[in-house]
Design a protein around this nucleic acid. Sequence first.
DNA 1: TCAAAAGTGTTTGTGGTACACCCATGG
DNA 2: CCATGGGTGTACCACAAACACTTTTGA
Lengths: 237, 237
Amino acid sequence: MLAAKPAVGAEPERAHERTSEIFVTVDVVILALRDDDLQVLLVKRKTPPFEGKWAIPGGALRVDESLEEGAMRTLREKTGVTNVHLEQLYTFGALDRDPRGRTITVAYYALVPTPLTVHAGRDAADAQWQSVYALPEMAFDHAEIVNYALKRLRYKLEYTAVGFRLLPETFTLSQLQRAYETILGEKLDKRNFRRRILQARVLEETGEFRTGEGRPARLYRYRADAVAEIKARRLFP
Amino acid sequence: MLAAKPAVGAEPERAHERTSEIFVTVDVVILALRDDDLQVLLVKRKTPPFEGKWAIPGGALRVDESLEEGAMRTLREKTGVTNVHLEQLYTFGALDRDPRGRTITVAYYALVPTPLTVHAGRDAADAQWQSVYALPEMAFDHAEIVNYALKRLRYKLEYTAVGFRLLPETFTLSQLQRAYETILGEKLDKRNFRRRILQARVLEETGEFRTGEGRPARLYRYRADAVAEIKARRLFP
DNA sequence: TCAAAAGTGTTTGTGGTACACCCATGG
DNA sequence: CCATGGGTGTACCACAAACACTTTTGA
């Protein structure tokens, strides 16, 4: 855990040194539910390093944009959507993560609703949705970043209502349950699931039904005024 | 939330541009319990900008150190300790956070055990412990960073056993409870606290007692092999 | 009338919460 | 012997978990 570098004493004040050999990028793990699968939008690299390998979208942070603006720009360029859940994930800064030189990346993750503007980005030709459960060979440390995003999403799902951000505006309870099952990777009990989600008072009926095979299903929407965070069970009272 | 900047289309590959106008620093919120108070180590700035204001320790990330190594170096320079809980907090990158130019900072927080090497850093002359509950006027966005660290620590305390990292090697249950109360800012029930912490099996008796005023107290230590994470109560089963 | 999915209650167990008194020591 | 902090048990309630059948529609 400790650096083998010499400790050079007190940190010098670098008040007037305003360029840096350290390169900053922002990368975004863009997640969506497709075909009962949790998928991530990947782009195939056309230039070295890691030519031909898959990467998560992103690029150099611009001097005139904040980190979140950079992430939002990447998201807009790749999917065309903007009004989605976007959250900073972690900053990766291993010395050897980019063979071209020292680069740190501030990783974000975004949850985009299923049917909306999937794949509408302007340079989406090389972009593809792929299952997070079967990642291809990836560039840099991007596999690690995607797995970190999955871990975080699962974790958040257990105590917040962030799951709705992956569904369309209105949805059935079965749809919602399938979404949870897809992300958590386990089967859930239908009756318990329905009771708890309805008791949480984060949903409201639209009054509409969705017909198809079988009995028509009540449609719900997420309540805008809902406080969708549950108090975690405390280790100590 | 959205940038007003023009979208310039696909991200250009900047394969060979290896300098940047963006400056990267690493800052560390160093926390310790002192006198039943949660305190943070601050340094007084001696140069502009924010001359005379208090800041959390940190400085430019070096090209030859990882983010964590940079945080560890700062910690070592200021306190002399290294074997402590150190965790990345968040990366702050607002456009105007440093008047000298575009700077992003990767913030870490560290929990140092109470009696160990407090204040032993080599240039600690200007460094002081101050209560997180009564922060002085601070430089940059450092007040925000400290408050973010406090929020994270409280949050983590509820489902992991990080609290031990703020105590000496051995401690009494009352000491531990006081630590939790200090951090969470609320009174806890003594019997429930003891039952739950002992049921969690993260402690072991040392066999020793600490005498002083009143009845001698059993000393405990944190079990190195303990899995100190509790499963959060899930919103959905 | 059958297939397919929606919808619905009860029981049992675990764990969270609230609460008050005796114990061991030093002065 | 008294002040000071250490240490202990129980009763109630809420919620998590397990579990199977009926209802409604379209083909």
